[in-house]
């Protein structure tokens, strides 16, 4: 299981890439979303969350009103565009809980893909989380053959080279992930020195 420090790092990264939005908005696929990219696949899912209208807990009807108002809007706008169509918010605490659940789900997927995942160095685990947040389990499993082979072989230097993602992924994000693998590679070499 991801350590508390790893989870805090991962939450910070996810917030940076997805934003931390307290009201409903539409993601690039046109799905109603809240928090740090937390998908509300249907109204019932939205009504299970602790939305607030000011300090009062929102009713199911109020959640429906926000959900339906946002759903009608064009997708792929800035999250702030959708705010005027909502009246409810979710707390930062609840957003963090949802994000932690996502991290746990991704960890299950990574363990499925890489049977030694729990034994990998922390830097490697953080790097793999970054990639799977971004590309998803299926793309990672099917479209990164040299990368996944290198990871399974614990060849962190090759994994570093193969980890690069093209635009619109930023150089900063690529450098971060590559740096994690390279650090793991360097530490692995040092550990071999008697």
């Amino acid at each position: 299981m991801a350590s508390a420090i790893e989870k805090a790092t991962l939450r910070a990264k996810m917030e940076k890439y997805e934003g931390k939005v307290s009201h409903m908005y539409l993601d690039s696929k046109g799905f109603v979303t809240v928090g740090v990219g937390h998908l509300l696949k249907d109204l019932a899912s939205a009504q299970k969350l602790n939305f607030k209208n000011g300090n009062a807990r929102a009713s199911k009807g109020e959640i429906r009103a926000d959900y339906e108002a946002v759903k009608k809007q064009p997708k792929n706008r800035l999250a702030s565009f959708y705010k005027k169509h909502t009246s409810l918010q979710i707390s930062a605490f609840d957003i963090d809980l949802l994000t932690d659940n996502h991290i746990d789900s991704f960890e299950i997927e990574l363990k499925r893909l890489f049977s030694d995942f729990s034994k990998y160095p922390s830097e490697v685990r953080l790097a793999l989380f970054d990639i799977i947040f971004n590309v998803g389990m299926t793309d990672l499993r099917n479209n990164w053959p040299k990368f996944t082979k290198a990871v399974k072989a614990k060849d962190w230097a090759v994994a570093a080279k193969e980890s690069n993602r093209k635009y619109p992924i930023s150089a900063e994000r690529n450098n971060y992930v590559r740096g994690l693998f390279e650090s793991a590679a360097k530490n692995a070499k040092l550990s071999l020195i008697p």
């Binding site: 690039s28 947040f133 971004n134 998803g136 299926t138 793309d139 992924i169």
Partner: peptide, 12 residues
């Protein structure tokens, strides 16, 4: 062409 992945946030 809008590119989406399943289970990830990549978008182009």
């Amino acid at each position: 062409v809008r590119d989406h992945v399943t289970g990830g946030d990549y978008f182009n």
